[in-house]
């Protein structure tokens, strides 16, 4: 009886102690994670919420007051010729740059890995565009693409092909920018693929050889390509996000012109926000941009990840 009473008394005491300990642990955990959480909110989630809120107003940069106008910015946006153009151009850009630069990057990585001579040189040469400042390179490109005395048109003339006014012709300007975008990303993708290639165990190739896989193409299809799955996925997503962010070449070389033929999302955002001072509208464009990037990240996390990992 006394025992029971004792336990009866002791149990709540123990739980209080437990609870106190649990509480202390929680406190420790919070104080450890707190700063990081706070910073994350301050610098990552907070600004996104601000942009969302701002996109529902008619705020003008530097204005003293603003008005909540609901979804009006979005309505205006989808009725705006320039914005539609901008979305089309951005999607075209992504649609061309991603497959081309991933394919070429993979090709370059395979070729460099296959040979043994001058490997370091090739690696450095292909990686150069990634290291060079794009603004400086854009100026070099501008010279090369000059309609009269640019290297590109002069070379074409030498083999009797008529060139274009690459940056002023509405029909070709976007493709010119795509070309520069590909040139810029191939090296980066190549490096990632090379890392992926070195991670493939040699015995898989030996096993394949025993199973009768003899030529290079079959080796690629049965071993290399499946084993590169996760890397490829990563490269595609990163290249897609980087392509959505195309801005510097447009700003330096075409300013979105001629007549909006090279207008892209980030450039629209910039010109609306910092040239026309329509911050509310620019925020709405930013939200659309974020939606695209988030969709890509979601695709990556939920659909593709499951297909490329072999546990």
């Amino acid at each position: 009886m006394a025992d029971i009473a004792a336990t009866a008394v002791r149990v709540p005491a123990a739980t209080t102690a437990n609870r106190r300990r649990a509480w202390r642990e929680e406190l420790t955990a919070m104080s450890l994670a707190g700063p990081a959480m706070m910073l994350m909110f301050l610098f990552l989630i907070g600004p996104v919420l601000c942009i969302l809120a701002l996109s529902l107003t008619d705020y003008q940069l530097g204005a003293k007051s603003l008005r909540v106008i609901g979804l009006q910015n979005y309505v205006d946006m989808f009725g705006d010729r320039v914005f539609r153009r901008s979305i089309e151009n951005t999607l075209t850009y992504v649609g061309i740059v991603v497959p081309a630069s991933v394919g070429l990057g993979l090709g370059a990585a395979l070729l460099i890995e296959a040979g043994t001579s001058l490997r370091a040189f090739y690696r450095a040469a292909y990686f150069l565009p990634v290291m060079a400042t794009l603004i400086a390179m854009a100026i070099v490109w501008e010279f090369m693409l000059h309609p009269r005395f640019g290297l590109v048109n002069l070379s074409l003339k030498a083999i009797n092909v008529a060139g274009y006014d690459w940056l002023q012709d509405r029909a070709v300007v976007l493709y010119t920018l795509c070309g520069i975008g590909i040139w810029q990303s191939v090296g980066f993708n190549m490096v990632l693929f090379m890392a992926g290639l070195t991670a493939i165990p040699k015995d898989l190739y030996e096993a394949a050889a025993i199973d009768g896989v003899n030529n290079g193409w079959d080796r690629f299809l049965t071993v290399t390509w499946p084993m590169l799955g996760p890397v490829t996925l990563f490269v595609v997503v990163i290249t897609a996000i980087r392509s959505f962010q195309v801005f510097d070449t447009v700003q330096v070389m075409t300013k979105g012109g001629p007549n909006r033929a090279s207008e892209v999302l980030l450039y629209t955002m910039y010109s609306e926000g910092f040239e026309f001072f329509r911050s509310g509208y620019a925020a709405a464009v930013t939200v659309v941009f974020l939606a695209f990037v988030l969709a890509l990240a979601w695709l990556n996390a939920h659909i593709l990840e499951k297909r490329v990992h072999y546990a």
Partner: peptide, 20 residues
Amino acid sequence: GENSLKIIAVIKDHLQSVVD
């Protein structure tokens, strides 16, 4: 109004489409 700078750009775009 507050869109005067944007209006200047819009007019320029349309005139460009005539000139080209």
